[in-house]
């Protein structure tokens, strides 16, 4: 554990909490992509099967359980409790276009051809693109609520911090995992355009609106 990892994990947790609180306080999930949230739940379910096979630390297990419960909770709020406020007309990204190729790739490029390892690889690849339905939704409506942009910023920061963590681990422990690094870089690159808008608009107190 290093500081980049820890801050990255906390940033990830903050993102999930911001989203949950936004939905809960406003009693509305308008502007949030349910499809991205389903994909994130799928990411956590397939990755954290290792809760049953590998015990690392109390921190590790507790965080995994929190991520699982909160992401499933978000899906529940969106598709059941506040379903009437869900903006499905704008959430039209076809997730099979992500899940199918990612599934195929995780069978082809993995560290070990075993069920758990393939599911872990699937979760890493899927996470890297899971935000696309959300970004697609924003590009369709041309704007995002400020709170939604804070959510995205925290979520993007998490992966960017993980990259710094991997650089640090490579130099201090000689550890690197190519699958995680490549997927993590892809994931971070997807946020770059958003980061630019966030810094130039949201931090200056303006709402995030895409240029027409």
């Amino acid at each position: 554990m290093n500081v980049f990892r820890l801050v990255g994990d906390l940033s990830h947790l903050l993102a999930i909490i911001i989203l949950l609180l936004k939905i809960w306080k406003t009693r509305s999930c308008a502007g949030v992509s349910g499809k991205s949230q389903i994909l994130f739940s799928l990411v956590f379910i397939t990755r954290y099967l290792d809760l049953f096979t590998n015990f690392i630390s109390v921190y590790n297990s507790v965080m995994k359980i929190i991520y699982l419960v909160t992401s499933l909770g978000t899906v529940y709020l969106m598709y059941f409790k506040f379903k009437a406020t869900y903006d499905s007309n704008h959430d039209t990204f076809r997730i099979e276009f992500l899940v199918v190729p990612v599934g195929g790739l995780s069978f082809l490029v993995n560290h070990d051809f075993t069920p758990l390892e393939i599911l872990w690889t699937f979760s890493i690849y899927l996470e890297s693109v899971a935000i696309l339905p959300q970004l697609f939704m924003i590009s369709k409506t041309g704007e995002a609520e400020t709170i939604t942009s804070h959510y995205l910023f925290a979520l993007g920061s998490y992966r960017a911090l993980y990259i710094v963590n991997w650089v640090y681990r490579y130099y201090t422990e000689g550890f690197f995992d190519l699958i995680a690094i490549v997927a993590g870089c892809v994931q971070t690159i997807l946020y770059c355009d958003f980061f630019y808008l966030y810094i130039t608009k949201v931090l200056k107190g303006k709402q995030l609106k895409l240029p027409a």
Binding site: R5, D9, H12, D50, N54, I56, S57, N60, M63, K64, Y67, H111, W120, Y162, N165, F175, F176, D177, A180
Partner: peptide, 10 residues
Amino acid sequence: PKIHDKHDEL
């Protein structure tokens, strides 16, 4: 890579 490392990260 050691299996430990992979499951250590979230």
